[in-house]
């Protein structure tokens, strides 16, 4: 009898605390499976993986990823990852996992300069257009017109600007190596997301440069939608504003 499917070793047995229908869980799985497979493929050495969790709903990611982990201050994960990576060098994979409030608001300086330095780390950027953990406030990524607890009349572009497209912005920075935006709204896109994560991790292990995979994600709880409705809302509203695809790949250029 041959084993056709196993639970990934890179996740602990701890039950996720995420809400039903939240995409954080799927994205965790993809990150963990990618690392597992790259270990089997000999790209990453077993036991040489360091993750950095953010402040946001994934603050407890250190309880889920079964490797050396940090929990960073809000927005500072890229700086923490930089400090660790400068010590461990090409021997180990170092990744950050960050939400959109964490990365695109309070942590803009840290992410921009990690990219600017061409820091050899990977960032998994989970964009759900809202501050999930604190109960659904407006993020820099919140869509125009989108209602949140701090934009109760809908985001007003004249008052607080239009949402930031982080991937496109970081792609303009000379130091970034590979940037792709993905979604996990269907099987095809889930597979694409995993391929992107594996590519980013592989580039890092080859010593190439800064890589970021943005993953559009749902927050049914704070969007006030059912999991199914939330996925539909993501497809109809987020994907048109945040187009999927490779924003930069120096290898392919």
């Amino acid at each position: 009898m041959s084993v056709v499917f196993e639970k990934t070793k890179l996740l602990t047995d701890k039950t996720f605390h995420y809400c039903p229908g939240c995409n954080h869980g799927i994205i965790h799985r993809l990150v963990a499976e990618s690392i597992d497979e790259l270990i089997k493929e000999g790209v990453i050495e077993e036991g040489k993986v360091i993750g950095v969790a953010p402040v946001g709903c994934s603050v407890f990611a250190y309880d889920y990823f079964n490797c050396d982990m940090y929990e960073a201050a809000h927005g500072r994960a890229p700086a923490v990852a930089t400090g660790a990576k400068r010590v461990v060098g090409n021997d180990a994979l170092v990744f950050t996992y960050q939400g959109d409030g964490d990365l695109a608001s309070i942590g803009t300086a840290e992410i921009v300069h990690a990219a600017h330095r061409g820091e050899k780390i990977c960032t998994i950027f989970v964009n759900n257009a809202i501050y999930g953990m604190t109960g659904g406030q407006m993020a820099p990524t919140t869509l125009v017109g989108q209602k949140t607890t701090t934009s109760p009349y809908g985001r007003d572009e004249a008052w607080c600007g239009a949402p930031i497209r982080v991937s496109e912005m970081l792609a303009t920075i000379p130091g970034s190596y590979y940037i792709e935006r993905c979604a996990v709204n269907n099987n095809a896109n889930i597979n694409k997301t995993k391929r992107a994560i594996k590519k980013a991790f592989t580039y890092q292990m080859q010593g190439k440069g800064f890589c970021l995979i943005e993953v559009l994600s749902t927050c049914p709880t704070n969007w006030g939608l059912s999991p199914v409705e939330a996925m539909k809302w993501l497809e109809e509203n987020m994907i048109p504003y945040y187009p999927l695809g490779v924003k930069k790949d120096k290898e392919a250029e």
Binding site: A73, G83, A109
Partner: peptide, 17 residues
């Protein structure tokens, strides 16, 4: 570093290893 904020967080990262 890009700021003192980043510098101390790099310390957090390096010291953690």
């Amino acid at each position: 570093a890009e700021s003192e904020v980043a510098a101390i967080n790099m310390i957090y990262g390096a010291a953690g290893t």
